[in-house]
């Protein structure tokens, strides 16, 4: 479904991605793991055609219309409420406004649909952004740090939703620096450090390779072992 082959990206003299290659299969949850500044968002920006790579090639087996996107910056209209925000996109996609309400309910925001975005908490804004990303039932979903900065309860709700979306047939590409989240959700992960993929495979498989299976696979220990960097 998604393929990246030897992707290189430079900003000025700084190389932020070096020979990045991976493959994401259909109906798979793929996690790109690494600390801030590792190049995760740059990869999403390349895959969503917001940045042009300086080298290598990539392909996504769907049209831009068939992708959903949730970034760290939510891009919501602050004066409009959640429902109005989603209705803008429902009008663009040519789908009914009922779907907007449906999407908001699916992320647990049924009661807050009439509140302006600038009066919502960060967690609620994140969920509104997620509802917008899944509104048109995309085949590929890009989620950049979907649970960053939100409470554990809300994060658990988002995890359940991501798993349900995968079960419904979506391919999910997510970035995170939360190793537990990756183990819990991802079918396959790539560990990214300073723009280089240092490990790639199933979470349990990677942990086994590095003798890092405790009671649960410990990806964080693998990351520290491979890169020498402790995640904050």
């Amino acid at each position: 479904m998604i393929k990246m082959h030897n992707i290189v990206k430079r900003f000025g003299t700084q190389t932020v991605l070096s020979d990045v290659s991976f493959e994401v299969k259909e109906k798979e949850i793929f996690g790109l793991l690494g600390p801030s500044g590792a190049g995760k968002t740059t990869i999403i920006n390349i895959l969503t055609r917001q940045l042009i790579a300086d080298g290598g090639s990539y392909s996504i087996g769907v049209t831009p219309f068939e992708t959903g996107l949730m970034l760290d910056e939510d891009g919501l209209y602050p004066r409009l409420n959640g429902l109005e925000n989603l209705n803008v996109f429902a009008d663009i996609y040519g789908i009914s406004h009922e779907k907007s309400l449906e999407a908001l309910r699916s992320v647990g925001l049924g009661d807050a649909v009439k509140k302006p975005i600038n009066q919502l908490s960060k967690g609620m804004r994140q969920r509104t952004a997620l509802a917008r990303a899944i509104l048109h039932k995309p085949k590929v979903l890009f989620l950049d740090e979907p649970t960053s900065g939100i409470d554990p309860g809300t994060a658990r709700g988002i995890h359940k939703l991501i798993l349900r979306l995968r079960d419904d047939g979506a391919t999910v590409f997510l970035t995170t620096h939360n190793m537990d989240e990756a183990v819990k959700l991802c079918d396959k992960v790539a560990l990214l450090h300073k723009g280089v993929i240092v490990e790639y495979g199933g979470p349990a498989e990677i942990c086994q390779r590095h003798n890092s299976i405790k009671t649960v696979p410990d990806l964080e220990a693998v990351f520290i072992k491979v890169t020498g960097v402790v995640l904050e």
């Binding site: 969503t48 917001q50 831009p64 219309f65 970034l71 939510d74 891009g75 919501l76 663009i92 917008r132």
Partner: peptide, 13 residues
Amino acid sequence: EHKSLRFLVMAGV
């Protein structure tokens, strides 16, 4: 500034 334009472009606008 609010990055809303980015999402519109991504939605095919």
